[in-house]
Amino acid sequence: MEKQLFDVTIIGGGPAGLNAALVLGRARKKVALIDDSRHRNAVTKAVHGFLTRDGISPIEFRRIAKEEISAYPSVSFVPDTAVSITGSDGHFQVETGQGEAFISKKVLFTVGMKDQPLSIPGLAEVYGKSAFVCPYCDGWELRDQQLVIINKGPELMHFAPVISGWTNRFIICTNGPDELTDAHREELKQHHVPLYDSPIRQIDSNDGIVQQVVLEDGTIIPCRGIFFKPDLVTGSDLPQRIGCEMTEWGAVVIDEFGKTSIPGVYGAGDAASRMHQAIAAASTGAFAAAVINNELNAEAWGNNR
């Protein structure tokens, strides 16, 4: 197996990984960006809230990013999946599914998050077309529309006031026990928000546009859009497998500099945050790249005395 030498291996090619590659490429660092092109936002039509790129398709966003990064020849794109990491700070070995091996001084995880299978019949057909998870990304397109919110418990009581900035025409389906307190139910009642706890039988749609939500008790709720709470896991189990500390919700624990619990290993983007927006992921990727570059330069400076 031929081993290729790099300063940094980036695992994951979303906004965080791409922005990190851009910063490191401009810093003259040799970078391998490993990405299998199985992106969570592949179901969505547009990226929103990203200055100068508002409304761009995810595919076009990545095409432009790679074109810009290609101006820096020290960055290599590897269309593959990272399957194992061994070694330690200064000498990591990353192996891929196709049998390539990359030796690098540092590793940056930008693996994002991925959805667990959607258990509600009909939800997969509307996801990314008229059913979404983030109102900051897609609330404008559904402004003033009749919506169904699929959520429950304390997170619902955070989400309800947030979505009210886009529309006051929404109904809550908890798809089972609501996990709310009496005070929470009274609060929703005071704001004239209908609440249904019957399980959801199915979501009916036409060409990806939701028409109605049908509950097990026979209730039919017409609507034009849905926001739901996804069940997420990290886009790769490699961080956990190599011993990175993880949060209770499954994200990689990082400090204010993007460092994980393992020296020489960093994290950025959705896999290390609850700020699941493209522009937030890109910014954390850029910052982690700068920290990595500074650390590499300091190590080289010390070794050259």
Rank of each mutant, 00 (worst) to 15 (best):
T110R: 08
G112A: 12
T44H: 09
L51S: 03
R26C: 08
A32S: 01
A46C: 13
G122M: 07
K66I: 01
T110E: 11
R28K: 12
G128I: 14
S119K: 03
A42Y: 14
V75G: 04
T81P: 05
H91F: 04
K45D: 15
S76W: 03
S104Y: 04
L123I: 00
H39I: 12
R62I: 07
V107S: 02
G25L: 11
P73V: 01
F77T: 02
F77H: 03
T86S: 13
S84L: 03
L24V: 10
A27K: 11
V83K: 09
Q116R: 11
S37F: 15
V75D: 04
D89C: 05
G25I: 10
S37L: 14
V47M: 15
N41V: 15
A82N: 01
S37Y: 13
R40I: 06
G25Y: 15
K114H: 14
D80R: 14
V126F: 01
I64R: 12
D115C: 08
D115F: 13
S57T: 15
D89L: 00
K45I: 12
F102P: 07
V31F: 13
V107K: 06
V126R: 00
D115Q: 07
V111I: 15
R26E: 05
Y72E: 02
A46W: 10
D35K: 10
R26T: 06
A21W: 02
Q116V: 04
Q93K: 08
K66C: 03
R40C: 08
D35Y: 10
D35E: 10
K45C: 12
V111C: 15
L108M: 01
K29I: 09
Y127H: 14
V31G: 11
A42K: 14
K29N: 13
A71E: 07
H91Q: 08
D36N: 15
I103V: 10
F109T: 07
V31A: 08
E95Y: 01
T110D: 10
A82R: 02
L118C: 00
F102T: 06
G90V: 04
V75T: 05
A21Y: 02
F102N: 07
A65I: 02
E100Y: 09
R40F: 06
G87N: 08
V94G: 00
D80I: 13
D89R: 09
A42G: 11
A124M: 12
A21R: 01
A71T: 04
I56N: 04
R63D: 11
Y127T: 15
F61N: 01
I120C: 00
L33T: 00
A27S: 14
S88C: 06
Y127P: 06
V107W: 02
L123N: 00
S88Y: 04
I120L: 03
L118V: 00
K66E: 08
F109I: 07
L22R: 02
H39G: 13
R38M: 15
G128Y: 14
A21S: 06
S104C: 09
I59L: 14
E100I: 03
M113L: 15
V31S: 10
E125R: 03
